[in-house]
Design a protein around this nucleic acid. Sequence first.
RNA 1: GGCGAGGUAGCGAAGCGGUCAAACGCAGCAGACUGUAAAUCUGUCGCCCUAGCGGCUUCGAAGGUUCGAGUCCUUCCCUCGCCA
Length: 424
Amino acid sequence: MSNLFRELEWRGLVYDATEGLSDALDRERVTAYIGFDPTASSLHVGSLMTVMPLARLQRFGHHAIAVVGGGTGMIGDPSGKSQERVLLSSEQVAANVAGVRRQLEQFLDFEVASNPARIVDNADWLGTIDVLSFLRDTGKHFTVNYMLQKESVNRRLESEEGISYTEFSYLVLQAYDFLQLFDRYGCTLQMGGSDQWGNITAGIDLIRKLRARKVHGLVWPLMKTASGAKFGKTEAGTVWLDPQRTSPFRFYQFWLNTDDQAASAYLKSFTFLDRSSIEELDSVTRSAPEKREAQRVLAREVTSMVHGRDLAARAEHASAVLFGEDIATLSASDVLSVFEDVPATDLAADLFESSGFGIVDLVAQVQLAPSKAEARRLVQSGGVYVNNRRVTDPHLRVTRADAIEGRLFVLRKGQKQNHVVRLA
RNA sequence: GGCGAGGUAGCGAAGCGGUCAAACGCAGCAGACUGUAAAUCUGUCGCCCUAGCGGCUUCGAAGGUUCGAGUCCUUCCCUCGCCA
């Protein structure tokens, strides 16, 4: 069995790890877990950063446990947060847990006989324990001094807002999770992003104190874009895995738009491509960056993994048409299939009869712009296109004669944001 | 409870009673340049229209002074700090 540790290492995914972890991974089949916060009902591309190591772990023959934080989600992890979180209702948490769980299932293999994956909800134990036992049996092993030293807590102590007792306790809950997983499943490794290091070591310390066993932790660096911005957000907001929230087309586009500097790291983090393939792509990026070969492969791989081969191929085709050919030469049905993922609005055909529909009103109407003033500004600055042709006159009236086959328009804002208007 | 500081647009932060829809920075949006990249540069960035030295609604809330208030007064709410 080749070593998971070295695999993660060349992929740039080892930021910190406990002593002896690499040896342990060499020696035995390890049971490891990663926690997922149910802060929303869908995972987003940032979550892939966490999902992938778990999937890799399983591919390397170890036992993977995904823990969905139905219990801890009721509290909120202060790590990496500068502000107190708004609490989610228990209904929200339950709904989110269900959504996240469903998505996690597609990345893990529950059928393999040797090391089937497992998904558990920490509400199973956190939801039933009583306060007194918790404080006596677990709380007793944490000094406040120790907790105050944790970066996640410390940073908040220095902030104006402070930290509530609720979030302060989070660390102990996560440590308790690790203990439970150790007891129930023999779990001896917890992984996570580097912001989790404090929470992970707390669990390690707890197990050492209570069970006299040395268990391990590993964290990877937090993913940032080359420009240092947070990963996974675009102008349109978070990029979700749920196709209802982020269409496969936009998902594909997100990855295709990766900048050159980040492409290599993304390939390493988000695909299963092997080292030589990735190095090959790196060299293509260096010699012919305008081909964006690395980005294309990245987008294809990740989209296929999340949405399947077919949808990925369609997104790829749609991209080619959209940014290459002239839409006006396509048939209405081709346009519709290419723009299947793009938001669409149905408008009554007679609105486009005679004098037609004012372009500013149309842009505002389909909400490509939040207000008419904004729509007007867009047009004046040259950011609006009808069927791929730029419109600059805010007084332009769009009529039915301009529609593709008299049936539809493709409105575009900027270079990428399309909107289909169907005449009904 | 006492004392002090403060609440201005998505965020940060200016703002001698008039020329304040409100400087500046960030974020956002668009344009140029490109490779659907990065960086850079330009414009824009409350809402409405008949697009103008136009109308309307904003500066924690409510009242008041004034010809005129983000700017002054009163009360209230909230935040932060120090002391009890």
